[in-house]
Structure formats: C-alpha cells, structure tokens
Amino acid sequence: MAEPTTRPRDAALGSGPGRVLLTVYLIFAVAAGARALVQIATKFGEAPLAYLLSAVAALVYIAATVGLAVGGARGRVIALTGCSIEMVGVLVVGTLTVTDAAAFPDDTVWSRYGSGYGYVPLVLPLIGLWWLWHNRPRDRA
C-alpha cells in the first residue's frame, strides 16, 4: 500500500488561516482585475495611470494567489515576490495619492493605502509576508 503524501509545512494552506489568506488574495485578484478591465475598457482616457496601476495590482494579487496555492519552493518564491511588490506598491502609490492627488484623477486599488477597500491592501501583504515567514522551511540538521 502506498504511503500517504503530505505537503511540506511551508505549503500547508489546506485549512485554517492559510486557506483564509489564500481566499482573500483570490478575492482581491478578481476584484482588482474586474475593476481594471472595466475602467480600461470604458474610460481609459480619463485616468490611464490609475487604471493601469489597478491592472498591475491585479497581476500582483494573482501572482501571490498562485504562489500561495502552489506551495513548495517555487510557490514560496512567487508568493514572496508578489507580497513584497504589493507592499512596495501600496506604500508608493498610497503616498503619491496623498501627496499629489491631482496626478490621480481616479482611484486605484492602492490609492490612499487602500482606503477604498478598508485598508486591506495595506494589511494583506504584511499578513502574507508574516505567514510565509512563520511557515518557512526549517533546517532539520
């Protein structure tokens, strides 16, 4: 009889907080992607920078979602990269939208540090990075 296979600890998203984190990332990927597609298709000329930044945010959320779902070494690198880019994006875009609001005639997902989404875009990468750190592979030597 074959032995059951188990996923390594760093990829254990099957239940609990890991599954919630994955679900939130998936929801944000869909929400940001849908928002960007509608904005780009219907009113791109009004605020192209804002709408393209929303599309970038959607791609980052997709990458983080895929990385968390895949797990293992490759998934971990993808998720770490996605969460890190997301954190930088939220801080940079958030700061720019606060200090130079005229440059952003319409909101992005990351405007004012994600205030339009209850500041979840600001907190989510912190939770994602914490999760990846907390569930990192340990040396077994």
Rank of each mutant, 00 (worst) to 15 (best):
Q39L: 14
I85H: 00
R138A: 14
A73D: 10
V70Y: 12
L13E: 13
L124W: 09
L59M: 11
G33V: 05
G116A: 08
A63S: 12
A31K: 11
V70C: 04
Y113E: 01
Q39M: 14
D107W: 09
Y117T: 04
A79H: 05
P4C: 05
G72S: 09
V120H: 11
A101H: 10
A69V: 02
V98T: 08
V70S: 12
R112G: 01
L124T: 03
A73E: 06
V120K: 04
D106E: 14
V24R: 04
F44I: 09
I78Q: 00
V56F: 12
A79P: 03
S115N: 08
A50V: 07
L129I: 14
A64Q: 08
S111N: 03
R19E: 10
D10V: 03
V70D: 10
G16F: 07
W133C: 06
V70A: 15
D107A: 15
I40Y: 08
V77P: 00
A141V: 11
E86G: 12
L59I: 08
V60Y: 00
L68N: 07
D106L: 11
V123S: 08
L122A: 15
R74V: 15
A103G: 13
L22M: 09
D106H: 14
R7T: 13
I40S: 05
A34M: 15
V24F: 07
G72V: 07
F28S: 06
P17S: 13
Y119E: 02
A12K: 11
G14Q: 11
I27G: 09
P4F: 13
R136G: 05
T81R: 00
A36M: 02
R138S: 11
S15R: 13
T81F: 05
L53M: 12
L96D: 02
A103Y: 06
P125W: 12
V92D: 05
D10G: 08
S54H: 00
G18Y: 05
S84D: 08
W110R: 00
D100I: 08
L68F: 10
A47S: 14
I78C: 03
V90K: 00
L80E: 10
Y51P: 01
T23I: 13
I62H: 00
G114A: 04
P4W: 07
R19Q: 14
V66R: 06
V20S: 07
Y113C: 00
I62M: 04
V77K: 12
A12Y: 03
R140M: 09
V30T: 04
R112L: 01
T97M: 05
V88F: 11
I127L: 15
K43P: 01
R35E: 08
A73T: 08
L49K: 04
L21A: 06
L122G: 03
W131A: 14
R9K: 09
L13A: 14
I27L: 15
A69Y: 11
V66A: 09
I85C: 01
L59V: 12
F104T: 01
P48L: 10
V38R: 12
A47H: 11
I62Y: 03
S115R: 14
G16I: 08
L49D: 02
E46P: 01
T6Q: 15
T42E: 13
F104I: 07
R35K: 12
W131E: 08
T5H: 15
P8K: 06
R112D: 07
S84I: 09
R74M: 15
G94Q: 01
G75F: 09
Y113L: 01
A102I: 10
P48R: 06
G82T: 11
L21D: 10
L96R: 02
I62E: 03
